[in-house]
Protein backbone atom coordinates (compact mmCIF):
# COMPACT_ATOMS: atom_id res chain seq x y z
CA UNK A 1 0.00 0.00 0.00
CA UNK A 2 2.64 2.50 1.06
CA UNK A 3 4.90 1.52 -1.76
CA UNK A 4 2.21 2.06 -4.35
CA UNK A 5 1.44 5.38 -2.74
CA UNK A 6 5.09 6.34 -2.80
CA UNK A 7 5.42 5.34 -6.40
CA UNK A 8 2.38 7.34 -7.30
CA UNK A 9 3.52 10.40 -5.40
CA UNK A 10 7.07 10.07 -6.63
CA UNK A 11 5.71 9.98 -10.16
CA UNK A 12 5.12 13.59 -9.32
CA UNK A 13 2.20 13.84 -11.61
CA UNK A 14 -0.47 16.16 -10.34
CA UNK A 15 -2.97 13.98 -12.11
CA UNK A 16 -2.08 10.93 -10.10
CA UNK A 17 -2.25 12.89 -6.88
CA UNK A 18 -5.71 14.03 -7.73
CA UNK A 19 -6.91 10.57 -8.58
CA UNK A 20 -5.46 9.36 -5.34
CA UNK A 21 -7.25 12.09 -3.41
CA UNK A 22 -10.53 11.12 -4.97
CA UNK A 23 -10.04 7.48 -4.09
CA UNK A 24 -9.13 8.45 -0.54
CA UNK A 25 -12.26 10.57 -0.20
CA UNK A 26 -14.42 7.75 -1.46
CA UNK A 27 -12.78 5.31 0.93
CA UNK A 28 -13.38 7.63 3.88
CA UNK A 29 -16.99 8.11 2.88
CA UNK A 30 -17.51 4.38 2.60
CA UNK A 31 -15.92 3.96 6.02
CA UNK A 32 -18.31 6.46 7.51
CA UNK A 33 -21.22 4.57 6.00
CA UNK A 34 -19.92 1.29 7.36
CA UNK A 35 -19.60 2.81 10.79
CA UNK A 36 -23.10 4.15 10.71
CA UNK A 37 -24.36 0.81 9.48
CA UNK A 38 -23.02 -0.84 12.63
CA UNK A 39 -25.33 1.23 14.81
CA UNK A 40 -28.30 -0.94 15.73
CA UNK A 41 -31.62 0.16 14.31
CA UNK A 42 -34.44 -2.29 14.79
CA UNK A 43 -37.14 -0.36 12.99
CA UNK A 44 -39.23 -2.75 10.94
CA UNK A 45 -39.29 -2.08 7.21
CA UNK A 46 -42.75 -2.97 5.96
CA UNK A 47 -42.87 -4.30 2.40
CA UNK A 48 -46.09 -4.90 0.51
CA UNK A 49 -47.50 -5.29 -2.98
CA UNK A 50 -49.38 -2.66 -4.98
CA UNK A 51 -53.00 -2.09 -3.97
CA UNK A 52 -54.49 -4.22 -6.71
CA UNK A 53 -52.22 -7.25 -6.57
CA UNK A 54 -53.80 -10.67 -6.16
CA UNK A 55 -51.13 -11.63 -3.66
CA UNK A 56 -51.92 -8.59 -1.58
CA UNK A 57 -55.64 -9.30 -1.76
CA UNK A 58 -55.05 -12.78 -0.35
CA UNK A 59 -52.82 -11.38 2.39
CA UNK A 60 -55.09 -8.48 3.37
CA UNK A 61 -58.15 -10.73 3.54
CA UNK A 62 -56.59 -13.05 6.10
CA UNK A 63 -54.39 -10.83 8.25
CA UNK A 64 -56.73 -9.64 10.99
CA UNK A 65 -56.99 -8.48 14.58
CA UNK A 66 -60.09 -8.42 16.77
CA UNK A 67 -62.22 -9.61 13.86
CA UNK A 68 -61.13 -6.86 11.48
CA UNK A 69 -59.05 -7.76 8.46
CA UNK A 70 -56.43 -5.49 6.91
CA UNK A 71 -58.69 -5.11 3.91
CA UNK A 72 -61.63 -3.96 6.02
CA UNK A 73 -59.36 -1.70 8.04
CA UNK A 74 -58.14 -0.14 4.82
CA UNK A 75 -61.65 0.36 3.46
CA UNK A 76 -63.35 1.63 6.56
CA UNK A 77 -61.00 3.43 8.86
CA UNK A 78 -59.03 6.62 8.71
CA UNK A 79 -59.84 7.32 5.06
CA UNK A 80 -57.87 10.57 5.14
CA UNK A 81 -54.65 8.95 6.20
CA UNK A 82 -52.13 9.62 3.48
CA UNK A 83 -50.74 6.10 3.54
CA UNK A 84 -52.21 3.66 1.07
CA UNK A 85 -55.31 1.68 2.05
CA UNK A 86 -54.60 0.89 5.66
CA UNK A 87 -50.90 0.14 5.41
CA UNK A 88 -48.75 2.29 7.62
CA UNK A 89 -46.98 5.39 6.41
CA UNK A 90 -43.61 4.76 4.84
CA UNK A 91 -44.42 1.21 3.74
CA UNK A 92 -42.63 0.08 0.58
CA UNK A 93 -44.64 -1.24 -2.36
CA UNK A 94 -43.48 -3.38 -5.27
CA UNK A 95 -45.19 -4.54 -8.43
CA UNK A 96 -43.58 -7.94 -8.60
CA UNK A 97 -42.62 -10.86 -6.46
CA UNK A 98 -38.98 -10.22 -7.27
CA UNK A 99 -39.24 -6.67 -5.93
CA UNK A 100 -40.49 -7.86 -2.56
CA UNK A 101 -38.11 -10.83 -2.45
CA UNK A 102 -35.08 -8.72 -3.37
CA UNK A 103 -35.94 -6.14 -0.77
CA UNK A 104 -36.27 -8.79 1.90
CA UNK A 105 -33.10 -10.56 0.73
CA UNK A 106 -31.06 -7.36 1.06
CA UNK A 107 -32.76 -5.59 3.94
CA UNK A 108 -31.97 -6.81 7.45
CA UNK A 109 -35.13 -5.28 8.85
CA UNK A 110 -37.57 -5.98 6.04
CA UNK A 111 -40.70 -8.07 6.23
CA UNK A 112 -42.84 -8.92 3.24
CA UNK A 113 -45.02 -11.55 1.60
CA UNK A 114 -44.58 -13.55 -1.59
CA UNK A 115 -45.97 -16.62 -3.29
CA UNK A 116 -44.67 -19.79 -1.62
CA UNK A 117 -43.43 -21.08 -4.98
CA UNK A 118 -40.98 -18.19 -5.17
CA UNK A 119 -39.41 -18.70 -1.73
CA UNK A 120 -35.73 -19.65 -2.03
CA UNK A 121 -32.64 -19.57 0.15
CA UNK A 122 -32.26 -15.78 -0.09
CA UNK A 123 -35.33 -15.24 2.07
CA UNK A 124 -36.79 -16.96 5.12
CA UNK A 125 -40.47 -17.94 5.35
CA UNK A 126 -41.96 -17.46 8.82
CA UNK A 127 -44.37 -19.75 10.60
CA UNK A 128 -47.71 -18.01 10.82
CA UNK A 129 -49.75 -18.71 13.95
CA UNK A 130 -47.31 -21.53 14.55
CA UNK A 131 -47.79 -23.22 11.17
CA UNK A 132 -45.08 -23.69 8.55
CA UNK A 133 -46.32 -22.95 5.02
CA UNK A 134 -46.33 -26.21 3.04
CA UNK A 135 -48.49 -28.24 0.68
CA UNK A 136 -50.01 -30.17 3.55
CA UNK A 137 -50.76 -27.20 5.76
CA UNK A 138 -52.27 -25.30 2.85
CA UNK A 139 -54.49 -28.20 1.81
CA UNK A 140 -55.59 -28.85 5.37
CA UNK A 141 -56.34 -25.17 5.78
CA UNK A 142 -54.02 -24.88 8.79
CA UNK A 143 -51.80 -22.35 7.05
CA UNK A 144 -54.09 -19.35 6.94
CA UNK A 145 -52.75 -17.10 4.16
CA UNK A 146 -53.67 -18.78 0.89
CA UNK A 147 -55.47 -18.16 -2.39
CA UNK A 148 -56.66 -20.13 -5.40
CA UNK A 149 -55.23 -19.98 -8.93
CA UNK A 150 -58.26 -19.65 -11.15
CA UNK A 151 -58.80 -20.66 -14.78
CA UNK A 152 -61.65 -18.79 -16.46
CA UNK A 153 -63.51 -19.09 -19.76
CA UNK A 154 -66.39 -17.24 -21.34
CA UNK A 155 -69.89 -18.12 -20.26
CA UNK A 156 -71.56 -16.56 -23.27
CA UNK A 157 -69.33 -17.68 -26.16
CA UNK A 158 -68.82 -21.38 -26.88
CA UNK A 159 -65.17 -22.42 -26.85
CA UNK A 160 -63.47 -23.47 -30.08
CA UNK A 161 -62.63 -27.15 -30.37
CA UNK A 162 -58.98 -26.62 -29.52
CA UNK A 163 -59.68 -24.31 -26.59
CA UNK A 164 -62.18 -26.78 -25.20
CA UNK A 165 -59.59 -29.56 -25.50
CA UNK A 166 -56.98 -27.40 -23.76
CA UNK A 167 -59.47 -26.69 -20.98
CA UNK A 168 -60.05 -30.44 -20.60
CA UNK A 169 -56.31 -30.84 -20.27
CA UNK A 170 -56.12 -28.11 -17.61
CA UNK A 171 -58.78 -29.91 -15.59
CA UNK A 172 -56.96 -33.24 -15.78
CA UNK A 173 -54.74 -35.15 -13.40
CA UNK A 174 -51.88 -34.62 -15.86
CA UNK A 175 -52.21 -30.90 -15.24
CA UNK A 176 -52.21 -31.50 -11.48
CA UNK A 177 -48.84 -33.24 -11.86
CA UNK A 178 -47.46 -30.08 -13.46
CA UNK A 179 -48.97 -27.99 -10.66
CA UNK A 180 -47.00 -29.99 -8.14
CA UNK A 181 -43.80 -29.72 -10.21
CA UNK A 182 -44.20 -25.97 -10.31
CA UNK A 183 -44.33 -25.69 -6.52
CA UNK A 184 -47.99 -24.73 -6.39
CA UNK A 185 -50.37 -26.75 -4.23
CA UNK A 186 -52.25 -29.37 -6.21
CA UNK A 187 -55.98 -29.14 -5.61
CA UNK A 188 -58.19 -32.19 -6.21
CA UNK A 189 -61.26 -31.64 -4.06
CA UNK A 190 -64.16 -31.22 -6.44
CA UNK A 191 -66.00 -28.84 -4.15
CA UNK A 192 -63.03 -26.55 -3.72
CA UNK A 193 -62.07 -26.80 -7.38
CA UNK A 194 -65.55 -26.11 -8.70
CA UNK A 195 -64.82 -28.95 -11.17
CA UNK A 196 -63.87 -32.63 -10.98
CA UNK A 197 -60.39 -33.91 -11.85
CA UNK A 198 -60.64 -35.76 -15.14
CA UNK A 199 -58.34 -37.93 -17.20
CA UNK A 200 -57.01 -36.34 -20.36
CA UNK A 201 -56.51 -38.26 -23.60
CA UNK A 202 -54.50 -36.40 -26.21
CA UNK A 203 -56.12 -35.92 -29.59
CA UNK A 204 -54.52 -37.86 -32.41
CA UNK A 205 -55.10 -35.14 -34.94
CA UNK A 206 -55.83 -31.45 -34.94
CA UNK A 207 -59.45 -30.54 -34.23
CA UNK A 208 -61.52 -28.53 -36.69
CA UNK A 209 -61.07 -24.81 -36.98
CA UNK A 210 -58.48 -22.27 -36.04
CA UNK A 211 -55.94 -23.53 -33.51
CA UNK A 212 -55.15 -20.19 -31.85
CA UNK A 213 -55.48 -20.06 -28.08
CA UNK A 214 -55.14 -16.74 -26.26
CA UNK A 215 -53.92 -16.97 -22.70
CA UNK A 216 -54.44 -13.81 -20.64
CA UNK A 217 -54.20 -12.86 -16.99
CA UNK A 218 -52.22 -13.13 -13.80
CA UNK A 219 -48.44 -12.79 -13.80
CA UNK A 220 -48.29 -14.91 -10.65
CA UNK A 221 -49.37 -17.87 -12.74
CA UNK A 222 -46.84 -17.24 -15.53
CA UNK A 223 -44.47 -20.10 -14.73
CA UNK A 224 -47.29 -22.53 -14.07
CA UNK A 225 -49.10 -21.74 -17.32
CA UNK A 226 -45.82 -21.87 -19.20
CA UNK A 227 -45.25 -25.42 -18.02
CA UNK A 228 -48.84 -26.42 -18.70
CA UNK A 229 -48.68 -25.13 -22.26
CA UNK A 230 -45.39 -26.95 -22.74
CA UNK A 231 -46.91 -30.23 -21.59
CA UNK A 232 -49.98 -29.78 -23.79
CA UNK A 233 -47.83 -29.26 -26.89
CA UNK A 234 -45.72 -32.25 -25.93
CA UNK A 235 -48.82 -34.44 -25.72
CA UNK A 236 -50.42 -33.09 -28.89
CA UNK A 237 -47.83 -33.07 -31.62
CA UNK A 238 -50.19 -31.32 -34.06
CA UNK A 239 -50.22 -28.23 -31.87
CA UNK A 240 -47.66 -25.53 -32.70
CA UNK A 241 -46.01 -23.30 -30.11
CA UNK A 242 -46.99 -20.32 -32.23
CA UNK A 243 -50.68 -21.17 -31.85
CA UNK A 244 -50.46 -20.03 -28.25
CA UNK A 245 -50.63 -16.26 -27.76
CA UNK A 246 -49.66 -15.65 -24.16
CA UNK A 247 -49.81 -12.14 -22.74
CA UNK A 248 -49.89 -11.68 -18.99
CA UNK A 249 -50.63 -8.33 -17.40
CA UNK A 250 -52.52 -9.11 -14.26
CA UNK A 251 -55.62 -10.95 -13.05
CA UNK A 252 -58.06 -8.23 -14.07
CA UNK A 253 -56.82 -8.23 -17.68
CA UNK A 254 -57.53 -11.97 -17.66
CA UNK A 255 -61.08 -11.33 -16.50
CA UNK A 256 -61.72 -8.57 -19.00
CA UNK A 257 -60.23 -10.62 -21.86
CA UNK A 258 -62.58 -13.48 -21.05
CA UNK A 259 -65.53 -11.08 -20.86
CA UNK A 260 -64.62 -9.62 -24.25
CA UNK A 261 -64.10 -13.01 -25.91
CA UNK A 262 -66.27 -13.34 -28.99
CA UNK A 263 -64.36 -16.19 -30.66
CA UNK A 264 -64.16 -18.64 -27.81
CA UNK A 265 -60.38 -19.01 -27.70
CA UNK A 266 -59.48 -17.03 -24.57
CA UNK A 267 -58.27 -18.82 -21.46
CA UNK A 268 -58.18 -16.40 -18.52
CA UNK A 269 -56.17 -16.75 -15.35
CA UNK A 270 -56.61 -15.00 -12.03
CA UNK A 271 -54.72 -15.37 -8.81
CA UNK A 272 -57.54 -14.46 -6.50
CA UNK A 273 -60.89 -16.17 -5.91
CA UNK A 274 -63.81 -15.58 -8.25
CA UNK A 275 -66.89 -14.20 -6.58
CA UNK A 276 -69.98 -16.40 -6.23
CA UNK A 277 -71.91 -14.31 -8.76
CA UNK A 278 -69.15 -14.35 -11.38
CA UNK A 279 -70.20 -13.86 -15.01
CA UNK A 280 -67.54 -16.37 -16.14
CA UNK A 281 -67.07 -20.14 -16.15
CA UNK A 282 -64.18 -20.98 -13.85
CA UNK A 283 -62.40 -23.59 -11.83
CA UNK A 284 -59.57 -23.42 -9.32
CA UNK A 285 -56.59 -25.26 -10.72
CA UNK A 286 -54.36 -24.93 -7.66
CA UNK A 287 -53.86 -23.32 -4.30
CA UNK A 288 -51.00 -21.04 -3.44
CA UNK A 289 -49.69 -20.08 -0.04
CA UNK A 290 -48.63 -16.51 0.54
CA UNK A 291 -45.49 -16.85 2.63
CA UNK A 292 -44.46 -14.15 5.08
CA UNK A 293 -40.76 -13.64 4.48
CA UNK A 294 -37.89 -11.93 6.28
CA UNK A 295 -34.15 -11.69 5.78
CA UNK A 296 -32.38 -15.03 6.38
CA UNK A 297 -30.25 -13.36 9.07
CA UNK A 298 -33.27 -12.27 11.05
CA UNK A 299 -33.74 -13.95 14.41
CA UNK A 300 -37.48 -13.98 13.83
CA UNK A 301 -38.92 -17.43 13.05
CA UNK A 302 -42.63 -17.03 13.59
CA UNK A 303 -45.34 -14.48 13.74
CA UNK A 304 -49.06 -14.26 14.39
CA UNK A 305 -51.76 -12.74 12.22
CA UNK A 306 -52.42 -10.16 14.95
CA UNK A 307 -48.76 -9.15 14.97
CA UNK A 308 -48.80 -8.88 11.17
CA UNK A 309 -51.87 -6.67 11.42
CA UNK A 310 -50.10 -4.43 13.92
CA UNK A 311 -46.93 -4.32 11.82
CA UNK A 312 -48.75 -3.44 8.60
CA UNK A 313 -50.97 -0.84 10.23
CA UNK A 314 -48.08 0.71 12.12
CA UNK A 315 -48.99 -0.18 15.71
CA UNK A 316 -45.75 -2.15 15.93
CA UNK A 317 -42.74 -0.43 14.40
CA UNK A 318 -39.81 -2.18 16.10
CA UNK A 319 -38.72 -5.79 16.30
CA UNK A 320 -38.22 -5.42 20.05
CA UNK A 321 -41.98 -4.93 20.40
CA UNK A 322 -42.56 -8.37 18.87
CA UNK A 323 -40.56 -10.19 21.49
CA UNK A 324 -42.21 -8.46 24.42
Amino acid sequence: MYTTMAVILKGGKKVMKKIFAVILAITLLTGAFAFAACQPNDTIVVVGREASSGTREAFDKVVAKDGMTLEEYGNETNPDDDAESGYREGALYFTSTSGVASKVATGKNAIGYISLGSVDSTVKALKVNGTEPSTETVLSGEYPIQRPFVIMTSKTTALTAVAADFLNFLKSSTAQQIVTNEKAVSLTDEQQRNAPVTEYTPLTSAPQGDLTINVRGSTSMADLMDALVGKYIELNSWMQQSNFKIDLQGSSTGRSAVDADTVGNVIGMASSAEKADTPRNYFNIALDAVAVVVNPNSSLTQITLEQLFDIYTGNITKFSQLVG
Partner: peptide, 15 residues
Protein backbone atom coordinates in the same frame (compact mmCIF):
# COMPACT_ATOMS: atom_id res chain seq x y z
CA UNK B 1 -28.73 -4.56 -4.11
CA UNK B 2 -25.89 -2.03 -4.00
CA UNK B 3 -27.07 1.51 -3.28
CA UNK B 4 -29.89 0.93 -0.80
CA UNK B 5 -27.95 -1.41 1.52
CA UNK B 6 -25.19 1.21 1.47
CA UNK B 7 -27.57 3.83 2.84
CA UNK B 8 -29.76 1.59 4.99
CA UNK B 9 -27.36 1.94 7.89
CA UNK B 10 -27.66 5.71 8.07
CA UNK B 11 -31.35 5.90 7.25
CA UNK B 12 -33.67 6.64 10.16
CA UNK B 13 -36.25 4.34 8.56
CA UNK B 14 -33.74 1.48 8.57
CA UNK B 15 -34.07 1.32 4.82
Amino acid sequence: YVMIPLFSGISPTAD
